[in-house]
Computed example of a mutant assay.
Amino acid sequence: MGGLKTYLSLLMLLCALAGPSAARAGNDVPDNPLQFFATCAGRMSALMEHQWLVDGPASDLTKARRAAVLDVVASITPAGQEAQVMAWRIEAKVAHAALLGASRHGTAQSRASAARQAAGLISPCEAYLS
């Protein structure tokens, strides 16, 4: 990654962590920003794929947000940690995809519960991007 792009990504991360929208949402600085953003990237991947099925236009916004998160992840991933970061992303994507799938199938109560849980997990990620 070029020096300017790395600098801008890190600047974006710092602004996101200190931003007023994150504070309004009740978010503190994550204990492990790398794991937090890697997990967010995985959840956003699952959400984007879900939106391809149920709400195509919404997937464009999610795709842009996911790209921003991936830039942050790339800029703060130390050499040698790439496999761990990918594991966090995959684990989060699989779990979130399962929740989103459950939000489309089952009883009305289980669908609503899964949808609420999925929304609750993605909202801290989106708060840093607002």
Rank of each mutant, 00 (worst) to 15 (best):
L100P: 04
E91H: 15
S110G: 06
R89W: 07
S75C: 14
A108S: 05
A74L: 11
S75M: 03
K93E: 14
R116W: 05
Q84I: 12
M86W: 14
Q84K: 15
W88D: 03
A127E: 01
A74D: 14
Q84D: 13
A87R: 14
V85M: 01
I122Y: 06
T77V: 09
S113D: 12
L121C: 05
V72D: 07
M86F: 10
E91M: 12
A95E: 14
R116Y: 03
Q117N: 07
G120C: 00
A118D: 01
T107N: 00
A114V: 00
R89A: 13
A87M: 13
Q81L: 14
V73Y: 01
I122K: 06
A87V: 10
A115E: 11
V72Q: 07
G80I: 00
A79C: 12
T77A: 11
A92Y: 00
S103F: 09
A92L: 00
P78G: 14
A87C: 10
S123C: 02
V94T: 13
A83Y: 07
A102T: 04
S75D: 11
L100W: 02
V94I: 12
V94P: 02
R111Y: 04
V85A: 09
S110M: 12
A114W: 01
Q81V: 11
S75F: 09
H105T: 11
G101V: 06
A127V: 02
A74Q: 13
S113P: 02
G80F: 11
A112S: 09
W88T: 03
Q109N: 09
L99A: 03
E91F: 08
E82L: 02
L100I: 08
C125P: 00
K93R: 14
D71G: 06
A114M: 01
G120W: 09
H96Y: 09
G106R: 01
D71F: 14
P78L: 15
S123K: 08
A95Q: 15
R116C: 06
H105G: 07
G120F: 04
E126I: 11
I122S: 11
A83W: 07
A119Y: 10
P78I: 05
G106A: 03
S75N: 08
S75G: 13
L121F: 08
T107G: 13
L99G: 00
Q117T: 12
T107P: 06
L100Y: 04
H96E: 13
P78H: 07
H105P: 05
S103P: 03
A95T: 04
T77H: 12
W88Y: 03
A115L: 07
D71K: 13
G101M: 12
Q109A: 09
A87Y: 07
G106S: 01
A115M: 10
S103N: 05
S110Q: 14
A114K: 01
A74Y: 11
T107K: 04
Q117P: 02
R89Q: 15
A115K: 11
I122N: 05
I76P: 10
A87F: 10
A79W: 14
E126D: 08
P124C: 04
G80C: 05
E91C: 13
G106L: 00
S123P: 05
M86R: 15
D71S: 11
P124N: 03
R89E: 12
A118M: 02
V73P: 13
A83N: 10
G101F: 07
I76C: 08
H96W: 05
A102L: 06
G106C: 00
